[in-house]
Design a protein around this nucleic acid. Structure first.
Lengths: 115, 115
DNA sequence: CGCTTCTATCGTAGATTGACGATTAACGAT
DNA sequence: ATCGTTAATCGTCAATCTACGATAGAAGCG
């Protein structure tokens, strides 16, 4: 694959013109975190409960433990959640600023912010 | 592949428990639309200018026309933009409600809305 | 120490994505 | 009718995603 536009592991391109808006990568990354119903559901669960043991998340989802773990990883990598090791288990909770950052990036999109 | 959880063409699963939050699919779908820097950039451009001919979008992006067209298709399918045929060209503009719907879905996520 | 529990990672399979050039389709103009 | 322009679609290829079972690691228990 060629290299990418930005945004961790995503396509790029040869000829470039428009200076990429600095926020597009961040926005895309955060959006990517939510871009799967299972991840949206997980985040909703965490926001509802404040925090949650991994096992409880798995129990509440129609997915295999390995799959949920992968989604949790994506949510972690995109900055939506963080996990705290608690003995043999891991407690996940939403990060303090992801939602705010995301909303702000959306706002800057909407307001037609100059680049 | 097995069938999916919901959300157009996405994975599903056998054992299910948690009733999927109605908004998760919509949220994921809209998020998916933004989940690529190129699409975020296109939407930003359209929000900046209000509307834009396809060709102008292509010219402002570091991507081939075919690729931009694909991204426009995704943005259209996820409800972010709409295109109006204008003779031999197509004029794209942001839809009136996508951003509002998205923000509302995010809000319902954040507020830990009961399902 | 050995066992159980909990979670992450590995490995794999099938589907989708994203990029591109080439082609097709739709219009307008000559 | 033909040509030129504009945009969508086709076909292809490499890379990524998602799902899963199986396996590995870590922590606590007996």
């Amino acid at each position: 694959m060629v290299d990418r536009i930005g945004f961790s592991k995503r396509p790029a391109s040869p000829r470039g013109r428009r200076v990429p808006a600095k926020g597009d990568d961040d926005l895309a990354s955060l959006a990517w975190g939510l871009a799967h119903p299972a991840r949206a559901a997980i985040l909703r669960l965490l926001l509802e409960r404040g925090e949650c043991i991994c096992g409880a998340i798995v129990d509440s989802m129609p997915l295999a433990q390995a799959t949920v773990s992968q989604h949790l990883k994506v949510l972690k990598e995109t900055g939506w959640i963080e996990g705290e090791i608690d003995g043999p288990r891991v407690c996940y909770c939403p990060t303090a600023d992801a939602m705010a950052r995301f909303k702000q990036l959306l706002q800057s999109l909407e307001s037609g912010e100059r680049r």
